[in-house]
Nucleic acid binder design. Structure first.
Length: 492
RNA sequence: GCCCCCAUCGUCUAGUGGCCCAGGACGCAUCCCUUUCAAGGAUAAAACCGGGAUUCGAAUUCCCGUGGGGGCACCA
């Protein structure tokens, strides 16, 4: 059986930071397109001029590229169905609105915002649901034409059926029926000549040949409206897939600004732009977000290729998912461990440079096996490997004192260690460990005590990668110098 | 207030009438390994929201509650 290539799209509006929800939808869009040999498209829905924020569009494009979700068509890459920015498609919407008016499915409305607001207030006073009162719906075409000729400002409204039921089919939820009287005659074209989402998205999805519309469940409320618009045009519908929303980690309510700030304090973020600086990898992030709303029974650690291989729209879940940042840590560290040394080296290098450390590439490559399984986020490389690139380290005096010993006894151990190590012509883990172990054996000390002092002296910290392997990378000269320095600190 | 959607371990989920005294993963706990921290190995605790109905048999179908979420703009 051959699968029909799917054309999918992510259609964000440039009104703020690109967040997790957008990224996940884009991921599913991408997976579906790639799996079926189709195309994934970026379309910018910038019809609300008041809410558009400068730079937001760029942030979306950067975010998608960072994730590796490269789109086949979009504002900055072009494509046969462009333009891909809705403000540049104004004429297309005007024409389509006109078609709808001519077909009797839409009508010009001359009501001013003021009178609209007034009727709304009155309706609320009467405890009615606020709705458009239909004043202009009943205007004769002649009358409307006269008003337009007179230069009266107008908008275009969709003529929603007032009776009956609309049955809309969602791929994950089945048929959703809603009584038509629940709906307003929604605005299709605004006074500024730009369309609302309802018109623009329907027109573009059709014109761009979109086969599957994946979007957030916040669109479920206007879903019947959209279906009516598409049907009014006489077009066939795409496959509709309404995705679940993300809830805050407690599972109660969705992420708010407040929760986003709290997450940031813990080193997490729901904004894609923050992910690199926090040390998250595209692989880990993608794997994590993929699994919030997509049920994979087993072997849930997946590369992009594996996700494409295994993806199916039918596997998506309709229920809301609480964000779990611990799982992000898990997927991130797992993918880090899966990377080869060269790859990981190039990824952690910027974090050292961010701290103004001069990175020696040979050392960088050598330390990878030592720190790889210790990294949860990429920036953890700082905690585990900064000392490799420092000229000298300054251990805390208390870190140099072994458990159960005083500074004098610790100094003696450091001196003895110095004697043992300086007797070697080279320090590597093969030649350095046996004599040190022998020393531990014949003394009344524990390995923990001796190696603890050595670790603090050489790395400047209590927690580090394996000691002897680390000393090997640091080199004999520096190791001895740091040890000498530690002895001085202890004797002070 | 009205409308729509959702409901399995703390969390993400598998499960589409018998294979389920419910499987996996995160997290948690214990043990092993161990010079620190990790990683790895082993083990454990942990769920079908409630009530009806259909059926020989229901986590799985239907109804009613309850809880949660979303929507009711010349915003998307």
């Amino acid at each position: 059986m051959t699968i029909k290539p799917a054309r999918t799209r992510i259609a964000p509006s440039p009104t703020g930071h690109m967040h997790l929800g957008t990224a996940r939808t884009a991921l599913y869009d991408y997976l579906l397109a790639k799996k079926t040999g189709g195309q994934f498209i970026l379309r910018i829905e910038d019809t609300d001029l008041k809410r558009t924020v400068p730079g937001a569009e760029q942030e979306i494009m950067d975010g998608l590229r960072w994730l590796g979700l490269n789109y086949d068509e979009g504002p900055d890459v072009g494509g046969k169905f462009g333009p891909y920015r809705q403000t540049e498609r104004r004429e297309i919407y005007a024409q389509h609105a006109k078609v709808l008016v001519e077909k009797g499915h839409a009508y010009p409305c001359f009501c001013t915002p003021d009178t609209l607001e007034k009727t709304k207030q009155e309706q609320m006073k009467r405890k009615e649901n606020p709705h458009y009162d239909g004043t202009c719906r009943v205007l004769s075409p002649d009358e409307a034409a006269r008003k337009i000729a007179n230069g009266e400002a107008y908008i275009v409204r969709f003529k929603m059926p007032q009776e009956g039921v609309t049955v809309a089919h969602d791929h994950l939820r089945g048929d959703i029926s809603t009584e038509n009287k629940q709906f307003n005659d929604q605005v299709l074209l605004k006074t500024d000549g730009l369309p609302t989402y309802h018109l623009a998205a329907m027109v573009d999805d059709h014109e761009m040949g979109i086969t599957h519309v994946l979007r957030g469940s916040e669109w479920l409320g206007t879903f019947p409206l959209h279906v009516n618009i598409v049907r009014a045009f006489g077009w066939h519908e795409p496959i509709w897939v309404h995705l679940s929303v993300f809830l805050k980690p407690t599972g109660k309510g969705k992420m708010s600004k407040r929760e986003a700030a709290d997450a940031m304090k813990d080193g997490y973020s729901i904004f894609i732009k923050d992910m690199p600086a926090l040390g998250f990898t595209p692989e880990g992030s993608l794997n994590w977000m993929a699994l919030m709303g997509w049920g994979v029974a087993e072997d849930d650690v997946m590369s992009m290729e594996e996700m494409i291989e295994r993806f199916s729209v039918d596997g998506l879940t309709p229920s809301p998912a609480a964000i779990n940042f611990q799982r992000l840590d898990h997927f991130n560290s797992t993918h880090i461990r899966l990377m080869n040394a060269d790859d990981l080296a190039s990824r952690i290098k910027p974090y050292f440079e961010r701290e103004n450390l001069k990175v020696d590439d040979a050392i960088l490559l050598k330390m990878i096996p030592l720190i790889r399984e210790r990294l949860v986020t990429l920036d953890d490389c700082l905690a585990f490997g900064s000392f490799f690139f420092k000229e000298n380290v300054t251990p805390l005096p208390e870190d140099l004192i072994a458990k159960g010993l005083d500074s004098k006894q610790s100094a003696e151990i450091a001196i003895k260690s110095y004697e043992i190590l300086s007797a070697l012509s080279e320090i590597n883990h093969i030649v350095a460990e046996p004599p040190m172990r022998a020393y531990v054996e014949q003394s009344a000390l524990s390995a923990n005590q001796v190696f603890g002092i050595l670790r603090a002296a050489v790395t400047g910290q209590k927690v580090s990668p394996p000691l002897f392997e680390s000393m090997e990378i640091i080199g004999r000269e520096k190791v001895l110098q740091r040890l000498k320095n530690a002895i001085e600190i202890l004797q002070r």
